[in-house]
Design a protein around this nucleic acid. Structure first.
Ligand SMILES: [Mn+2]
Ligand SMILES: [Mn+2]
Ligand SMILES: [Zn+2]
Ligand SMILES: [Zn+2]
Lengths: 152, 152
DNA sequence: TAAGTAAATGCAACAATGTTGCGTTTAAGA
DNA sequence: TCTTAAACGCAACATTGTTGCATTTACTTA
């Protein structure tokens, strides 16, 4: 099913701006900050972008998450998305080096028991470290004890 | 050891404002938002409060966490705190009803395996639901199938 | 394919949150 | 008590997000 139809199926008009945003989010499986999207679509109005993301979120097309800096990010909802609380069923990874954030769709949030009278509704799991690309780059920049072919 | 000495031990002056903030954070084991602290200390300058929290964080007296809304919160570091990354070794609970956030010092962040080339440095675990107090209140307000003594 | 309409956009203004610079005050050691 | 680096208070600014309103546009229906 194409992007235009996916947007329309949620009762939203498939405007050019929406197609651009939804297209970008669909192609990569990353969680984008507002700043990142603004940089990608330089002539898109700031407020329009806020509203597009809000509308997408309400429609269940994207989910909102916060990175290790507390900044808001948006990512596409996987097709197996149960709806509004999609973001809560999988783990997110935030790279300390490049700052990018990834949805690890395949990794479910773990089970956890907590004491006291707390009634658990859900959880957010945010893992941080360095992504594959940044791992490689740091190895390339500061080779320590590697064989030649690993340095590349 | 008293509050004044704990602040001084980190190389900070134990000013009245700092004693108030540190005292409050020490007594309760909650993670306070900036707004909550401003409300508690109405005649404390906004900027001073920001700087106190920043200094405490740098000194390892408190740790910064984000709640389910992405809002910044600060909580005391437990005495077994390993230092800068204290916040990462225990789980936090955020009440959906009253909005309060609790440090569950006794609950360690779980182990988790993720695929791909990601290099894990740590994780944040944020559980949400309703706290003990709010559980009770909702039972009191909307009694369904309870015995009398439970409704109280 | 033209017209009608609700939805979406663009712009300005505003609100909330956090930061910086700088002159004044104060905690703590001598 | 004196000295001084640290902390404070205030104003100004930056960033992020929201709201109101006039204009434009995507989609429906004729
Ligand atoms: Mn995600
Ligand atoms: Mn904590
Ligand atoms: Zn990276
Ligand atoms: Zn509560």
């Amino acid at each position: 099913m194409d992007i235009v139809q996916q947007i329309r199926d949620k009762g939203l008009k498939a405007t050019p701006a929406r197609q651009l945003v939804y297209g970008e989010l669909t192609r990569s499986h990353m969680a984008f900050s507002h700043a990142e999207l603004e940089a990608l679509f330089i002539d898109m109005d700031r407020v329009t972008l806020y509203r597009i993301l809000k509308d997408f979120e309400d429609a269940g097309l994207v989910h909102k998450v916060f990175d290790t800096q507390g900044s808001t990010r948006f990512a596409i909802c996987h097709h197996t998305c149960p709806g509004k609380h999609h973001a809560e069923n999988h783990v997110h990874f935030n790279c300390n080096d490049c700052g990018k954030m990834f949805c690890l769709q395949a990794v479910q949030t773990p089970e956890i028991n907590i004491p006291g009278g707390f009634k658990v509704a859900g959880m957010h799991t945010l893992i941080y470290g360095s992504c594959e690309k940044c791992n490689h780059q740091s190895e390339t920049n500061f080779p320590v004890n590697k064989t030649d072919e690993l340095i590349e």
